[in-house]
Amino acid sequence: MPDPDAGPARCRPWPTRRLPPGVAMTGLLEINELCVRVPRPGALWQRLGGRNPPPLEILCGVTLDLAAGETLALVGESGSGKTTLARAIMGLQPFCAGSIRFEQAVLTGRGRRRWHRLRRRAAMIFQDAVASLSPRLTVGRLVTEPLSIHGRPMGDRAAEAGRLLSMVGLSPDMAGRYPRELSGGQARRVTVARALAMEPRLVIADEPTAGLDVSVQAEILNLMTGLQRDLGVAYLLITHNLAVVRHVSHRMAVLYLGHLVEVGATAAVTARPRHPYTAALLASEPSIDPARRPAGPALDGEVPSLFDRPPGCAFHTRCRRATDLCRTLQPQFLPVDTGHVVACHHPLD
């Protein structure tokens, strides 16, 4: 809804963090310098009192690109802005600066008509699968809903629903069920079927395996991998599960408190993380091998509050390598290798 703080006019210019040459920028999706700010709660009273508090910065200067048929994992802890970024791409979250370009078309501002094309060619899978299914509609109706929204002729609706359900490994008999009658894994499959109904080029999957048992998680991941191979769909995979990232993604981007800190090929980043935060994340992942038990936690403290964003590099409060430079100056993106960039004053070797 309209609010004065979201207007582009209020945005200060951001330090340019262009990706270096060599990183392909002719992708399916290009996000450039994206900023999302929301007014501080209670800001109205303070403004009436004559003070003008700065808005909360949820995302700051995020630049990312995604090629067709690729899986890019977006990693970060709670409050890092992962879900906000996904919502911004789908036009569900207004942004105040930067641009989103999808299949060469620039998307800015609000208004449903501008996002209509993207919403036809891209789909989002929400974190809470059961809650993202309209409770009073049947499964058959739900999976064909995108076709009906975009006026796609589908002949026999029941047959189309059956086709989509079998594509994700569900029985067409499920079409008559209601969302509350589904198990977690089944609901997840229904959301995948619905996302694929329009044969999208891009699927944004927000924690697609959260809360699932490992065997069901494996089934969902296999399903997504198989559909990518068959249909050439690109995934933006949002997750905090690094094992999943390592397993299914081609490239990964690490987000900390609204800033990207490292982007690169998954194999390269996991084998040799250059940002101390990425390294700590990787080291924190509990290993299934008891022999590789860590001596202690790799990272102390918690993610700072958005209300109290540290100056300079946002990570300096928890970083063991932080210097005075980190406390004052926000680091720029620097290439450390082909297609591997890191925003750190003192990157790891």
Binding site: A123, P135, R136, E145
Partner: peptide, 26 residues
């Protein structure tokens, strides 16, 4: 702001559809 309304919006559902097909029955 519930996820299913967000999901409908992300699919491009218009105002009348969200109002009458998704909100009204609930």
């Amino acid at each position: 702001d519930s996820p299913f309304i967000q999901a409908e919006r992300s699919m491009g559902a218009g105002f009348p559809r969200i109002l009458f097909i998704h909100l009204l029955p609930n």
